[in-house]
Design a protein around this nucleic acid. Structure first.
Lengths: 231, 231
DNA sequence: TGACCAATGTTGACCAAGAAGCAACTGGAT
DNA sequence: ATCCAGTTGCTTCTTGGTCAACATTGGTCA
């Protein structure tokens, strides 16, 4: 699947991530492979992405993540699968030899529906499972999915009926779209904005008002990391 | 299942991958099988792919991956059903009888980017792969993915950078969002509306004008069936 | 026996991809 | 505003994959 150069580069990236926890920059890779120009690295990276070994964020520094490894580097034999979080009330493990083909995806439980003002109970039980591309998930962390109800986020391109993928976390930056638990009462999907010591939860729809709460009343339960829509 | 030659080739590829970590090139295979021409290899490779033993990216150097082995080479006896093949190259269909513990997903090739007025060449080569939930696909039909460029469909909740899943078809109802080829020139993602014998292609953004064409100038190439967004 | 087909072998032309280098450009971060 | 990382265009050379055309061999079947 990979040419020698591509394999070399992948191997180097892997070592670096293991050693430093941070992927190398283009310049570092250039040096490691004894090249005189970064553009060669760029091409190799593109090839690796195309072949599904890494995923990356374009135009971002060191935004490379290894998604899978070829067998020769100790990756699962192709009958395997990159095990990732599978939560919910299902057996935690992924069938080891599930499939002759590697599929870069994970099943997540859909925990219910969410909107402005949905009772928290709604996000407590699994209604069904969805498969999501592995690239969507962080390599660590727990994820789950919710079905969006209502149009409160349409201006952010989140429609009624969409399935959103949430990474569980209690921290969020201003501007992130989060699942927030307000006054231990209701869970909503909103854009979180910090206003001094208060927190504003903005809908992405002029028809809904932004509501501002003191910090203690808002608990972040997760951050939006992906969206899946079926027509 | 396999002819002698096909088996020989498969065996050779396997050895090489094991030894070098890199699949052999056509030339190397040619030499190994004592042929004087690469085209014989080409045929054998095609046959192996057809039979589901290897997976490959067309037109890419050494882009071969062994998916399974016949029993004679130590492969597991296949459990009976046909592989839930997920070919990098436009999966033909969703496996009908997929194993219940298997991930319900399929890898689709992302064929490029699409927007208002993108040259058709853009949708011709694989840039990378995405996994999409099987629920999103029709049980029959070919699917592929495109990355959306631009904001011409924002009011339909389709943002810049989203990946749209397209089912290949040449028919569409009024109101469907389709990939349309206009005057054999440009491929665009638009909402198709029939106006008598003419066809209107509407953007979902007031900033873009609806354009109306005679039927002959618009060819539907596929219909939007899903959307995947990663934040 | 002859028609036919599948698998294979071969040639040669053709073009695309891989690899490398240099330089200019862009976009974030500080 | 400057630095750094990544992106892109362009050139050159090498390697690698595709395809049409034609030939050979061995089986199947009327």
């Amino acid at each position: 699947m990979l040419t020698k150069k591509q394999l070399d580069l992948l191997e180097f990236i892997q070592k670096r991530v293991k050693r430093d926890g941070v992927p190398p920059s283009f310049d570092e890779m250039k040096t490691a492979l004894n090249l005189r120009s970064k553009s060669g690295i760029h091409r190799l990276i593109t090839a690796l992405e195309e072949r599904g070994f890494i995923r990356r964020l374009a135009h971002r520094a060191r935004a490379i993540e290894i998604v899978r490894l070829p067998e020769s580097l100790g990756g699962e034999p192709t009958t395997g699968f990159v095990p990732r979080v599978i939560r919910g009330d299902r057996p935690a493990s992924i069938p080891a030899n599930a499939d002759p083909v590697t599929i870069q995806a994970v099943e997540l439980p859909v925990m219910g529906r969410i909107a402005a003002g949905v009772p928290i109970e709604a996000i407590s039980q699994v209604s069904h499972q969805v498969a999501v591309p592995a690239q969507m998930l962080s390599s660590s962390g727990e994820h789950y999915a919710l079905e969006v109800k209502g149009d409160s986020m349409i201006d952010a391109g989140i429609n009624d009926g969409d399935v959103v993928v949430i990474r569980e976390t209690s921290v969020a930056d201003s501007g992130d779209i989060v699942v927030a638990l307000v006054k231990d009462h209701e869970a909503t999907l909103k854009r979180l904005m910090r206003r001094g010591s208060a927190i504003a939860l903005e809908a992405a729809n002029p028809a809904y008002e932004t509501r501002v709460y003191p910090q203690e009343q808002v608990k972040v339960q997760g951050r939006l990391v992906g969206l899946i829509r079926t027509y």
